[in-house]
Design a protein around this nucleic acid. Structure first.
Lengths: 208, 208
DNA sequence: AAGTAAAACGACAGTTTGTTTATTATCTTA
DNA sequence: TAAGATAATAAACAAACTGTCGTTTTACTT
C-alpha cells in the first residue's frame, strides 16, 4: 500500500524478504518455496510477511513488476538508435551500442534473472519479458518493422525474435554471464540480421 | 514399477489421472493443482493416486518423459531428409516435409503441449524440449552443423535456434493451432535459413 | 523523550500431504 | 465360470503449511 516507505524497518524487511526469495529460488525453485522458508531465511516473523504481501505469489508479482519496469527503461529509449544502426549496417560492425544498457542491466540483476529464466523459474515471467521485448521493438511509433508488407505474419516474426533473444540470454546467464555484454549483443544482432545459419558461417550468401 | 500394465483397472486409472492433470493444467496451472484436485477430477480415491505416483511432481515427470520420448521419434528419423532439403534450397520451396511429422505430433497433443508451454506451464519442460531439439539437430552423427569453423559459439547458435522454434510453436498453439503444419514449417524454416528480418521482407539481399 | 507504527510472539482453525488400515470390487487365467 | 490375485475404496492419522488475530515488545520518527 505505502508508496514511499520512509520507515527504515519497512525497507529492511522488504529487502530481506526479496533477498530470501531470490536465494531460495536458486536453491529450490519457486514452486518448492513456502512462506515459512522465506521468513526463516529473512529472519523475520511470519506474520510480518503477511502484513506486506498477500502470499508468495503476490511477492513474486511485485518483484517481477519492478524488474520489468526497470528493464523496459533500458530498451525503449534506445530504439531510435537501434533503428539507425540496423539500417546502415550491412557489412560493417553489428549494431550493439543501443543494446548495451539492456545487457548491462541483465548482468547487474544476474541472480534474479537467472532464477526467473532458469528451469525452476516462472514461465509467466518469460511471457511478460517477451511482451516487453515486443513492445520495445514493435510498439513504438517509429517501429522497426512496419506491420505491412511482411512475408511472415507479424505475430510469428515477433515470437521468433523475442524467443530467440531470451534463449540467448538464458544461455548467457546460465554460463555465469562471463562474456562481456558487447559480445552477446554482437552475437544476437548478427544472427537476427543476417540469419542464424549465415551468421554462424554455415550458409554463404543467401540471395533471394 | 509395472512396465506393461495388463490390468485394465490400472490402465483406466492412469488415463483418468493424466486427463485430469491436463485439464487442471489448463484451468489453474500446475502450481495451483493439489493431489486432491486430481483425484476428484479423475474420480478415484486419493490413496489410489499414491499407489501409482509419488506425488504430483512424479506424475508430471512421467507424463513429460513419455511426451518427449515420442517427440524425439518425430524428429530424429527425419534429420537426414532435412539436411538434404536445407542444402539444396536457396530460392526454391522451403524444406518442410521433414518437419511435418513433428508439427503434426504437436498438433495431435495440442492441449497438453499448450498447457506445458503456456504461461502457467513448466519452465523445466521448455528446457527439456530445447535439449530435445538440440539433440535432434546437433547430436546426430550426420549433424547439420559441424561444430568447427562457426563464427558464433555453438551453444549460442543452438540456443537461438531452439528457443526461436519453441517461440513459434507457443504462438501457434496459443492461437489454437489453426494454421496447417505446413505453413508453420514454412515460416520457421524461412526465418532460420534466410534470417528473420530477411524472411519477413524487411531486409533485402544480405551479402557479406 | 513521547507518541506512533512496525515487528515479534503465540495461538487458531482449516487445508493439504503422505501413510496405513481393513474392506470391497474387479480383473486375469486356469 | 469359479478361485485367487490384486487394484480400488473408505476412513483415519500425524505432520506441515496457510492465513488471520490479538497482545506485547521493539525501534523509528519528530
Amino acid at each position: 500500500m505505502s508508496e514511499n516507505p520512509t520507515d527504515l524497518r519497512v525497507v529492511r524487511t522488504k529487502q530481506a524478504i526479496r533477498s530470501a526469495l531470490i536465494a531460495l529460488m536458486e536453491e529450490k525453485g519457486f514452486e518448492a518455496i513456502c512462506v515459512k522458508d522465506i521468513t526463516e531465511r529473512a529472519t523475520i516473523n511470519r506474520g510480518t510477511f503477511y502484513s506486506h504481501y498477500e502470499d508468495k505469489f503476490d511477492l513474486m508479482d511485485k518483484c517481477q513488476e519492478q524488474l520489468l519496469k526497470e528493464m523496459e527503461t533500458k530498451i525503449v529509449p534506445n530504439i531510435p538508435k537501434l533503428i539507425e544502426e540496423t539500417k546502415q549496417d550491412d557489412a560493417g560492425p553489428m549494431p550493439i551500442s543501443a543494446l548495451m544498457p539492456f545487457f548491462e542491466f541483465l548482468r547487474a540483476n544476474q541472480s534474479f534473472m537467472k532464477a526467473l529464466l532458469g528451469p525452476r523459474g516462472d514461465a509467466a515471467f518469460q511471457v511478460k519479458m517477451k511482451e516487453c521485448l515486443h513492445r520495445g521493438l514493435f510498439g513504438q511509433e517509429h517501429a522497426i518493422f512496419k506491420a505491412e508488407g511482411l512475408l511472415v505474419p507479424p505475430r510469428y516474426l515477433a515470437s521468433y525474435i523475442a524467443s530467440a533473444h531470451i534463449g540467448i540470454i538464458q544461455e548467457w546467464l546460465n554460463g555465469g554471464a562471463i562474456e562481456p555484454p558487447e559480445d552477446i549483443a554482437r552475437i544476437i544482432s548478427g544472427m537476427t540480421i543476417k540469419g542464424p545459419l549465415f551468421a554462424a558461417g554455415i550458409r554463404q550468401k543467401p540471395d533471394a
